[in-house]
Design a protein around this nucleic acid. Structure first.
Length: 788
DNA sequence: AGCACGCCGACT
DNA sequence: GTCGGCGTGCTC
């Protein structure tokens, strides 16, 4: 009998009998199969996780027969299934949930068809048809299958690919305000990016069909197959590093030392982890590439991962230049399902070594013999996925190199405190690079105390505005970091003082002037502005605070009239390739000022930038998160790294209301070692990771469910009682930092322990205390990266 | 997630 | 009497 993990709900692993219509040898571990489920005989896709499953099935359950394989050769290798099992155990979810979370959509569907070629004209049979056949008929198809006269058609969404809806114009859009349907479609596409027509109709209702056609006619939306090459954001390569990649490099002395050390680890036939600690601009990429060359020469595959698509693109073009004849696979979460499926399939079949470049999701690509995994900017929190399938890319990467005796190389200028601690404990080896590779020098950093500034003064101090203006007048460029997108984060009603809030999340709605809407940054809810005040029915609001959009507007007033300003945030980069275009335009000096959120601090290279301004340095410092200081330090050092990359010296100006904070003394000199020494002592004293294992258990229930609070209290009792027994400190329950999100009330418990097992035991007990199918949802976040 | 089952209220 | 509301529970 076969044990099969379902790839869609209920995600269980169920036993199925091998049917008479196919030979038992047709079923293999790691293979995708189609199985019937439930009384209605619905069909599901699953992965065979065991072929001679002898696990006891509950008494009285009659086994169903597995219907058909979705492929002849298994998609997944045994090691891959091993990784899935580990992840499932670690995060206390089923293997089906793991598989469902990491396979591209097309590989999870049961809607495949068979093409039968028995002599005459070929006929096509769906899985549903097959399920409805008589036993004899199915056996006949089985015999043809065994004789290779049946092929699998899985082109279900090729049709969808032909009708992709792409937004062509940024807001504000020139449509009548009364055309609600059209605005709905535009807003939706703006939020979700490119979507197939079918999905759009599914998600917004088929009533929008006419509106969509109008938009297409008027040229606001394009309906058709995707245009151009494989990666739209990679089309233009002008923002890449100024290094001249070619047939191998001459390494600088520091790079050579680091390379030699890592190369020795690579040739050592045991799994190893290492950290490349190199300041911003020290040329880490060169070291990665030379190591990749070593691994390839040994016949091993290489994975290079970056925290974000734009950075992954840069890595990709660097790899293609360094290894022009080597096959290189690029993969990220923003690619279309078809594209991702294609890459996944190619790699699953592949046996010869290759290079894989991408973002964290690329980590789950099947790959032949992995010799090296590089995680660039390893401190970046995007390497942890905390929605849906929860995983920390660093851990998965570690597991993967463990399996293949490879090397995991983490690179950063500001390493994760946990990683650096592992280096100190000699669990991870380290290479250090403290010189900038080019002519650039580290910038001079100064703090600007804005404690006494009034709200009406705007967000930039006079001194700051002056420096921005002077820099622009000198013909140099400025980047301004403000971690708040939109126009104004709070809208006060002028008549009654009420603040406009999201009805699902209870957080303030952010005003976006360009779109004339109030938007919730947590759930995406949006209403058109002006909106009637829910308290006094007034229509007049006072925007409070300042986001990137307003900062951009204010800057226009204080700068010379012909100054061009660009804005880089989630709103201006929704459309594919847009981010790259903005970065390229800025790198080509088409604008003098770039305003943006943290996404602009990440590893981009602008030689003519001589001033970096951090508009609100404290933002984030006071978050209820033990890593707030680490996060702020990393962000600011990375942002500082944007200035002075060319020949001219750079300056960094940080505005703060709390100049006494210990973080600042180290940011000024980009002194990571100093910061680390201070931070690790604080963590030791206060018992925070890496000195304890920390986990967050989250509970949520619908706002209108009155039994919710009772259950939360019961769970606290369960947790407390078990915590005493297993030596786990239980803090909570406390309302989550966002007490209401997407219409659900949220609570959380913080758990501290010396080992993960006790924490899992507690979570297991809490989960069992809640009846199955309850409205209360529980989730476990191991080593959370954000406490929200 | 679906889909059946089942236990109450409004209707022919 | 019966139709149908959706709350609860199961899927090898």
């Amino acid at each position: 009998m076969l044990a099969i993990s379902l790839l869609t709900p209920p995600y269980a692993t169920l036993s199925y009998a091998t049917p008479a219509w196919l030979d038992a040898s047709a079923w293999k571990c790691g293979q995708r199969v189609i199985v019937p489920l439930g009384k209605g005989g619905m069909l599901r896709a699953g992965i065979v996780v065991s072929v001679d499953d002898d696990s006891s099935v509950k008494e009285g359950v009659v086994l169903k027969e597995c219907l058909w394989p979705a492929e002849r050769e298994p998609l997944l290798r045994p090691e891959y299934l091993g990784m899935v099992k580990q992840l499932a155990l670690r995060h206390m979810v089923t293997e089906g949930e793991v598989l469902g979370g990491l396979l591209p959509a097309g590989l999870r569907t049961s809607k495949i068809r068979l093409r039968i070629l028995d002599g005459g004209k070929p006929r096509t049979v769906s899985m549903r048809d097959l399920a409805g056949m008589s036993a004899e008929e199915r056996s006949r198809v089985g015999a043809l299958w065994a004789g290779n006269a049946v092929e699998i058609l899985d082109s279900t969404f090729d049709a969808e690919e032909q009708e992709l809806c792409t937004l062509l114009v940024d807001p504000p859009w020139s449509v009548r305000p009364s055309a609600k349907r059209q605005i709905e479609v535009l807003e939706y596409l703006h939020d979700k990016g490119m979507l197939s027509r079918t999905r759009l109709l599914q998600e917004l209702g088929s009533g929008i069909s006419a509106a969509l056609n109008t938009l297409a006619e008027r040229g606001l939306v394009r309906i058709g197959p995707r245009e151009g090459g494989t990666c739209e954001s990679c089309e233009d390569e002008s923002n890449e590093c100024s290094f001249d990649f070619g047939e191998g490099f001459t390494l600088l002395p520091e790079q050579q030392v680091a390379f030699d050390d890592f190369s020795a680890l690579l040739h050592d036939e045991t799994p190893k982890s290492a950290l490349l600690y190199g300041i911003t601009g020290s040329g880490k990429t060169v070291v990665y590439l030379e190591l990749a060359a070593e691994a390839l020469a040994k016949g091993l595959s290489v994975m290079l991962l970056a925290p974000e698509v734009a950075l992954a693109c840069k890595l990709d073009s660097a790899v293609r230049k360094r290894f022009p004849s080597q096959e290189c696979f690029f993969y990220n979460g923003y690619q279309s399902p078809t594209e991702r499926e294609k890459t996944f399939r190619l790699l699953a079949k592949r046996t010869t070594p290759c290079v894989i470049v991408g973002t964290r999701s690329a980590l789950f690509l099947p790959s032949p013999r992995l010799g090296l995994i590089v995680l660039d900017e390893e401190h970046d929190t995007s390497f942890k996925q905390d929605e849906g399938l929860v995983y920390q890319a660093k851990e998965v990467a570690h597991y993967r190199v463990q399996q293949s005796n490879g090397l995991l190389l983490l690179g950063s200028a500001t390493p994760d405190v946990k990683t650096f601690h592992a280096v100190q404990q000699q669990a991870v080896s380290m290479g250090v690079m403290k010189e900038r590779a080019g002519e650039g020098k580290l910038p001079e950093v100064s703090l600007l105390n804005i404690k006494n500034m009034k709200r009406s003064d705007g967000i930039l101090a006079a001194e700051c505005k002056k420096q921005i203006r002077e820099t622009v007048e000198r013909g140099e460029q400025v980047v301004i970091l403000l971690n708040r997108r939109g126009y104004a984060p709070l809208m006060y009603c002028l008549d009654c003082g009420h603040v406009a809030r999201c009805p699902h999340c209870e957080v303030g709605l952010t005003y976006h002037k360009g779109r004339e809407r109030l938007i919730c940054h947590y759930c995406g809810y949006s209403v058109s502005y002006p909106v009637v005040c829910s308290k006094c029915k007034g229509l007049h609001y006072l925007p409070m605070g300042e986001g990137t959009e307003k900062l951009e507007e204010n800057l226009i007033e204080i700068l010379p009239p012909d100054t061009k300003i660009l804005r880089l945030d989630r709103d201006s980069t929704r459309r594919p390739g847009k981010m790259q275009r903005i970065l390229d335009a800025f790198a080509n000096q088409e604008a003098q000022v770039l305003v943006g959120t943290q996404m602009l601090s990440k590893g981009h290279h602008f030689p003519n930038v001589t001033l970096a301004v951090v508009a609100d340095g404290d933002l984030g410092l006071n978050l209820p998160d033990y890593r707030a200081a680490e996060r702020t330090f990393q962000l600011l050092v990375q942002a500082s790294g944007r200035a002075g990359r060319g020949e001219k010296a750079g300056r960094v100006l940080i505005q703060t209301r709390d100049p006494g904070h210990y973080c600042w003394q180290f940011v000024g000199s980009a002194d990571y070692d100093g910061f680390y020494a201070e931070e690790i002592e604080r963590r030791r004293k206060r018992k925070y990771p890496p000195f304890v294992k920390l986990a967050l258990i989250r509970a949520s229930y619908p706002l209108d469910w009155n039994k919710g609070m009772e259950w939360v209290e019961t769970l606290t009792e369960v947790a407390r009682a078990l915590g005493k027994e297993h030596d786990v400190r239980v803090l909570g329950h406390t309302p989550s930092p966002l007490p209401v999100l997407r219409g659900r009330k949220r609570f959380q418990w913080t758990l501290k322990s010396d080992d993960w097992i006790s924490i899992r035991t507690l979570y297991y007990a809490m989960r069992n205390a809640v009846p199955r199918g309850s409205k209360l949802r529980l989730s476990l976040d191991i080593d959370p990266v954000n406490m929200l």
